[in-house]
């Protein structure tokens, strides 16, 4: 409560308390927790929160850390501008 927060996900301001409550509410799968709270899905793509979330999830759910499945990781590893990939000869330029 108030402004003393223990931030896990810096991108979406998700606290440790938020994660624990969400797991209690029934979002008790790492994929569902991700979609419900937004962790892993901010501009850092999980680079700031990743392992911390997994640790909290494992402690709270009782699922051993070693048994968590490594998901297939979605590209891009770093955010890339659309214009870099776009084939500029393809579309008509209308600046």
């Amino acid at each position: 409560m108030g402004n003393n927060k223990e931030i896990v996900c810096f991108c979406q301001d998700v606290t440790k308390e938020d994660l624990i409550r969400s797991i209690d509410e029934g979002y008790d799968n790492i994929e569902t927790l991700k979609r419900y709270t937004g962790v892993f899905m901010g501009p850092c793509q999980g680079k700031t929160c990743g392992m911390n979330v997994l640790k909290i999830f494992s402690e709270k759910s009782g699922q051993p850390f070693e048994e968590l499945k490594v998901p297939s990781i979605r590209p891009p590893v770093v955010p890339i501008p659309l214009g870099a990939i776009a084939n500029s000869n393809n579309g008509k330029d209308d600046e």
Partner: peptide
């Protein structure tokens, strides 16, 4: 990327975060 930039030129400098 090509089609979205064609339709929305303003997206050219916007960064892609996820692909699935």
């Amino acid at each position: 990327a090509s089609k979205f930039v064609e339709l929305f030129p303003c997206l050219s400098g916007v960064k892609i975060m996820r692909q699935w």
